[in-house]
Simulated scan of single mutants.
Amino acid sequence: MVEPHPSGGYILDELVVGMTAEKRVTVSEERIGHFAEASDDFNPLHMDEAFASKTAYRGRIAHGLLSASFGSAVVGTILPGAGAIYLGQTLNFYKPVRIGEVAAARVTVATIDEAAARVVLRCEIYVGGELVMDGEATVRVPRRRRAPKTP
């Protein structure tokens, strides 16, 4: 597992296929509420226990894109980190994530296209060691760091 780069982000030449980073996030009532506010998605499956208890899920579940956003947090803050620009993302959902569960978002460098400064990242979300979501993100990565501004 890699840690965030001291500069805040890895540049293209520092990336190697197989590099992996992970972030663990507890799915809380508060996070679901904030995500609903930010996305304007107030589906009762996420917000209303009485409604959700009558569905196939037998209770409230987190928004799928809330769980996916934990992978985005890894991409933006750890691997590659600051300066990475999302170009595309695929997602596959296998199981719901529930309030109180800890989601482990794991991102692994799958391929590197040096000519285009693009990287494909394998993104996975686990709960209790079980895969609940996966996909691939394509991101543009900086080739070099900007020199710090001098006063």
Results as ranks from 00 to 15, higher is better:
V119N: 01
V27H: 00
P4E: 06
E37M: 11
M133P: 01
G18S: 01
R118P: 00
G18F: 01
A103Y: 03
G18I: 03
G81R: 07
E37N: 08
E3S: 15
E130P: 06
I125N: 06
A104C: 11
F35L: 00
D41I: 05
E37I: 14
A73L: 12
I85D: 00
T108D: 03
P151G: 15
E37V: 14
I99V: 15
T111F: 04
S69Q: 06
T111C: 03
A110Q: 14
L15Y: 06
E22A: 15
E136L: 12
E130I: 15
E101D: 10
V132A: 02
A52E: 04
A115M: 10
F35Y: 11
H5E: 07
A38D: 01
L45K: 10
K95I: 09
T55N: 07
P80Y: 08
E114I: 12
E101G: 10
F70Y: 13
I112F: 05
Q89K: 09
Q89F: 12
I85C: 07
P148I: 05
L12F: 06
M19E: 03
G100Q: 09
G100H: 07
R118C: 11
S69G: 08
S7W: 04
N43G: 02
I125K: 00
F70H: 02
G8R: 08
L131N: 04
V97N: 09
G128M: 07
V102D: 07
E130W: 07
L121P: 00
I61D: 05
A82H: 15
A73W: 02
Y57T: 13
S53H: 11
S28W: 08
Y94F: 14
G76Y: 06
H46M: 05
V141H: 02
T150M: 13
T20E: 12
H63S: 02
G76I: 08
H5W: 05
G33D: 11
Y86M: 13
G33V: 10
A117H: 15
A56W: 07
I99C: 12
A116I: 04
S72Y: 03
Y94R: 12
E136H: 13
A84N: 01
R24Y: 08
Y57C: 09
V132N: 02
K149I: 12
T77V: 11
D13S: 14
A56N: 07
A52Q: 04
R144M: 12
M19Y: 01
G59R: 11
D13F: 05
Q89R: 11
R98Y: 05
H46N: 04
R58V: 08
L66Q: 01
N92E: 13
S67F: 02
R31C: 06
P96S: 01
T138V: 15
S67V: 14
S28F: 09
L91Y: 13
P96Q: 01
H63Q: 03
L131T: 10
A104G: 06
A36Q: 00
L12Q: 02
P6H: 05
D41V: 08
A38N: 02
A82Y: 09
L66A: 04
K95S: 13
A73T: 13
E101C: 07
R143A: 12
G83H: 08
E101N: 10
D134Q: 09
G9K: 02
T150G: 12
G81C: 08
E3G: 05
D48Q: 01
C123Y: 04
V16T: 15
Y86V: 09
L15V: 10
P6N: 05
A50N: 13
L87I: 07
M1S: 14
